[in-house]
Amino acid sequence: MEESVFIEAKGLTKVYEDGLCALDHVSFSVKSGEVFCLLGGNGAGKTTTINLFLGFLPPTEGSATINGIDMHRDPLEAKKHVAYLSDVVMLYPNFTARQNLDFFARLGGKRNLAKEEYYSVLRQVGLQEKAFEQRLKGFSKGMRQKVGLAIAIIKDAPAIILDEPTSGLDPKAANEFLNTLLQLRSQRRAILMSTHDIFRAKEVADTVGIMNEGKMLTIKSRKELEHEDLEELYLNYIHGKVAA
């Protein structure tokens, strides 16, 4: 069965006004049911790639498409098909978990959902029942991250973009988070995730793209990685021991 491509970068380039090249002709695609991990250190271009996919920046060259729609040309239409979760998920601290979910669901076009539908998604991400109607101001980072993931899920978008979603989470919370991610993969969602956590990337990724200084150095499938040490591969690419 041929999988449809939901997230695609073609020759994506970003050069800032001061001449800094943050992204240099990056191309990759994420199919439905695939988790694509962008791996790289700080300043590698992972977040710039994500910002281009969300329309927060215009590309200098190339295109970023979601479900075949160019984000730069038709951002409002493209954003209907993508859900996003960032590393900073403070959300609205005076709203309860359900109220946060309700607000973002409505922004994503889901209106008139029943309370139980919100609760079901919150259960899916593993948030405790008693926290559903509690204000977020008392939530830990892990709990907020769960609500953030619930927000991404409830939009029911075919593409999901996650920017360093496990940073700052304790191992248990990170593990729970990745389990939920795998569930989403099984629901045929295309997931693009940036991270610098090599071990977690290896755990969940179907494809890994190693980035450095704005360039995509290599793209490896799970199958290709089976016989390789990802950490060593990553370090070799970063230190230029392997030609990109």
Binding site: L54, G55, F56, P75, L76, E77, K79, K80, V82, A83, Y84, L85, S86, D87, V88, V89, M90, L91, Y92, P93, F104, L107, G108, G109, G148, I151, K155, I161
Partner: peptide, 13 residues
């Protein structure tokens, strides 16, 4: 700063 701006604008807003 709280990350909600990107989250809101990642929707068709």
């Amino acid at each position: 700063e709280s990350g909600t701006l990107k989250l809101v604008l990642s929707n068709p807003v």
